[in-house]
Simulated scan of single mutants.
Amino acid sequence: MKLGFIGTGNMATAMMGGIIENHIASPEEIIGADPFAPGRERVKEKYGIRVTADNNEVVKNAEVVILSVKPQFYADVIAGIRDDVTDSHLIITIAPGKTLSWLADQFQKPVKIVRTMPNTPAMVGEGMTGACKNAYVTDEDMEKALSILNGFGKAELIPEHMMDAVVAVSGSSPAYVFVMIEAMADAAVSGGIPRSQAYKFAAQAVLGSAKMVLETGKHPGELKDMVCSPAGTTIEAVRVLEEKGFRSAIIEAMKKCEEISKSL
């Protein structure tokens, strides 16, 4: 599979790592473009891929092109490559707020587009990606796209109207979790645990809890109840979280995230 990246930043780097490690594409089959020389040289040295400063060189040498630049640069990037994009190319986007309709308008011609929203845990092979497609994408194309996306975590095909909610629950949510881990560690330090160990205890607890949700199939509320013994320490901690609006704060933060995503 000839795979091209326009943009070689953190998300592109994470995706490349998983794709290469899982033998979805070899380094020789990947080309990345970036106007920032240190950025493209970094991925060349790390993965052995071919790099260039020319976006159109990527399009001309790839079957699948991943637009891994910031949303505000999408219009200019697409304007620069659209003449070289053909109906045989599969375009994968990772920008919040850029709808399939908007993307089609930018290309000004029929193009196969898969819109996705990955997240930064892709950097450790545990990404979660939502994906939707336009009418030109065949089942075979979508299978190819999902094989790429599953190379750095897990991917789910969803209707486009859910994409802004995916931004809130997955794309942006690592930041909420990091804030929680930091707060848990601060409390642990206050209780006498050294900082380095506090982060480890907090992060491992979050990792293990998430794994229990995924692997047991039990409702999170049921798993929570399993930890909360009558008159015990945990139920008191949960009571304080509810009193302070922990659950509501998460919901309201995600609704705001979804609102902003829709406006991009």
Rank of each mutant, 00 (worst) to 15 (best):
5 F>D: 00
12 A>Y: 01
19 I>L: 06
21 E>K: 15
23 H>T: 09
26 S>A: 15
27 P>W: 03
29 E>H: 08
30 I>M: 04
31 I>Q: 01
35 P>Y: 09
35 P>D: 07
37 A>H: 08
39 G>S: 15
41 E>Y: 07
41 E>H: 12
47 Y>R: 04
47 Y>C: 05
49 I>G: 01
51 V>R: 01
52 T>G: 09
55 N>G: 06
55 N>L: 05
55 N>W: 03
56 N>V: 10
58 V>A: 06
60 K>V: 02
60 K>W: 01
61 N>V: 05
65 V>N: 00
65 V>S: 00
65 V>E: 00
66 I>G: 00
67 L>W: 02
67 L>P: 00
70 K>H: 08
72 Q>K: 13
74 Y>I: 15
74 Y>V: 15
76 D>P: 01
76 D>V: 04
77 V>Y: 08
79 A>G: 11
79 A>V: 02
83 D>R: 12
84 D>C: 02
84 D>P: 00
88 S>M: 09
89 H>N: 13
89 H>I: 06
92 I>A: 01
95 A>S: 13
97 G>A: 09
100 L>H: 05
100 L>P: 03
103 L>N: 05
103 L>I: 13
105 D>H: 10
106 Q>K: 15
108 Q>V: 07
109 K>N: 08
113 I>F: 02
113 I>H: 01
113 I>M: 07
114 V>F: 01
116 T>W: 01
117 M>V: 12
119 N>Y: 04
121 P>K: 08
122 A>L: 06
124 V>W: 10
130 G>S: 08
131 A>W: 00
133 K>H: 10
136 Y>I: 01
136 Y>W: 14
138 T>R: 08
138 T>E: 11
139 D>K: 14
140 E>F: 03
141 D>G: 06
142 M>W: 04
144 K>C: 12
145 A>R: 01
145 A>N: 03
147 S>M: 07
152 F>T: 04
154 K>G: 02
157 L>F: 07
157 L>G: 00
157 L>Y: 08
158 I>M: 12
159 P>Q: 09
160 E>K: 06
161 H>Y: 13
161 H>T: 07
163 M>H: 04
166 V>E: 03
166 V>Q: 05
166 V>H: 02
174 P>W: 06
175 A>F: 10
179 V>S: 10
192 G>S: 11
195 R>A: 12
196 S>A: 15
199 Y>D: 04
199 Y>N: 04
205 A>Y: 02
205 A>H: 03
206 V>L: 09
207 L>D: 03
210 A>I: 05
211 K>F: 07
212 M>A: 12
212 M>H: 05
213 V>Y: 09
215 E>Y: 10
219 H>P: 02
220 P>V: 08
221 G>S: 07
224 K>R: 15
225 D>H: 09
225 D>G: 04
227 V>L: 11
228 C>P: 01
229 S>I: 05
229 S>A: 13
230 P>M: 07
233 T>Q: 11
234 T>N: 10
235 I>P: 03
235 I>Q: 08
235 I>D: 05
239 R>A: 15
247 R>Q: 12
248 S>N: 13
249 A>I: 05
249 A>H: 06
252 E>Y: 05
253 A>W: 03
255 K>M: 14
258 E>D: 09
260 I>F: 11
261 S>T: 13
261 S>R: 06
